[in-house]
Simulated assay, not measured.
Amino acid sequence: MIDVDRERVQAYRYAAQQLDRSAAHVGDLAVLSLGVPDSPAGSAAQSVRARVPGAEVPADLVLAWSVRGSPHLHRPADLPALARQLYPTSDADVVARMPVMRAVDAPLRVFARTVAAMREHARETTDRGTLSAAVTAEVPEASAWCQACGATHVFYSLYLQSGLAAGVRLVRRSGRLQITATGDWTIPQRTEDLPALVEQVLRLQGPGSVADVAAFLGTSAAALRPSWPEGLAEVSVDGRRAFLPPEATAALESPPPARGVRLLPPGDPFLRVRDRAQLLPDPGLRALLWRATASPGALLVDGAVRGTWRARKAGRELQVAVTAFGELTAGVRAEVEIESQQLAATRGAASAAVVYDSI
């Protein structure tokens, strides 16, 4: 068994997710295999530029509701296999992913009907509300009255998590979300090759347990355990038992030192950890970074979270407010300025102005 501490794991994750800027092109980013989260809208572009400075998001990448039903940026060629891997394995798996589905009989069968309805009604470009109303009519048993909307509609988690299997793609234009189903698509009939997906999660996220990977995928450990891959290497992370694909152990034993300053948006793959204490041990600081709503971005310095940031546009200027967890050196501040200028370009601003606070 390999014995490592949390600092080595974070150095491994930094390199595996190419925050070391080892990728020459956006299309080469390993994180695209699982998708780059785009919630809040536009954050995927920030995650991309944190790894490939100055790069534009290629037009051939697409947005889809994928892992956990959240919008992610993907390579189109990856999506058919991912849709099969993420297709629920059982009624219990459907309920683990969408607890509201306890209210229906035969949840997996209802999920399949919802997928078919999503595809049928998204063949022509539509919007969220129109598609929801059409799908609701097809699966009335999986719908409920929504006080906020003043209408009955399909369970929202079911609506989102059916999108990938239905071949749904998302396009944001002028602040509005448009939805369409890709033309060349085969709806999965069952789960396929889930162990390979588990291995890829571990490869990119670092050593983890069944519960860690289940949380990443949005299911339960009980539902995932039958698909757990054989032959994984055992790893002890500060005494906690975890697993990693055997071919990744050499990189874990001697990862290159994490270097540089990165401004990571909320939801960046590096921040998606079940045990947040491994990334940020102080519980008070964790509460500042991971909030119930409107979380800030993370200031990463040499692979460690050293603060948070928020940004807003004022005319052509992006105003970046950094709250540091302790003092920042002049060198770190200089790198923050550089990263903020890149963030300004991502947000469509001509320049950035940085203000600092500290805790």
Rank of each mutant, 00 (worst) to 15 (best):
252 L>V: 11
252 L>M: 12
254 S>V: 07
255 P>L: 07
256 P>F: 10
258 A>L: 12
260 G>A: 10
260 G>I: 14
260 G>M: 12
261 V>Q: 05
262 R>V: 08
264 L>Q: 08
264 L>S: 09
265 P>G: 13
266 P>V: 02
268 D>I: 04
269 P>V: 13
270 F>R: 15
270 F>I: 12
270 F>W: 14
272 R>V: 12
272 R>F: 01
273 V>Q: 13
273 V>D: 00
273 V>W: 00
274 R>W: 06
274 R>E: 06
275 D>I: 06
276 R>L: 01
276 R>I: 00
277 A>G: 15
277 A>H: 09
277 A>Q: 14
278 Q>S: 14
279 L>D: 03
280 L>F: 01
280 L>N: 01
280 L>M: 13
281 P>I: 01
281 P>R: 01
281 P>S: 03
282 D>M: 09
283 P>E: 05
283 P>A: 14
284 G>E: 09
285 L>P: 04
285 L>T: 05
285 L>H: 11
285 L>C: 06
286 R>W: 01
286 R>P: 10
286 R>G: 03
287 A>D: 12
288 L>M: 11
288 L>N: 05
289 L>H: 03
290 W>C: 08
290 W>N: 12
291 R>F: 06
291 R>N: 05
292 A>K: 08
292 A>S: 06
293 T>C: 07
294 A>Y: 15
295 S>N: 05
297 G>R: 10
298 A>N: 00
298 A>D: 00
299 L>M: 06
300 L>E: 01
300 L>T: 01
300 L>K: 09
303 G>N: 08
303 G>P: 11
306 R>K: 14
306 R>D: 00
307 G>F: 00
307 G>H: 01
307 G>V: 00
311 A>R: 02
311 A>D: 03
312 R>M: 07
312 R>W: 02
314 A>F: 11
315 G>K: 14
316 R>Q: 10
316 R>I: 04
316 R>W: 11
317 E>F: 08
319 Q>K: 15
320 V>L: 09
320 V>F: 08
321 A>N: 05
322 V>G: 05
323 T>R: 15
323 T>I: 05
323 T>P: 02
324 A>L: 13
324 A>P: 14
325 F>W: 14
326 G>N: 07
326 G>M: 06
327 E>P: 02
327 E>N: 10
328 L>P: 05
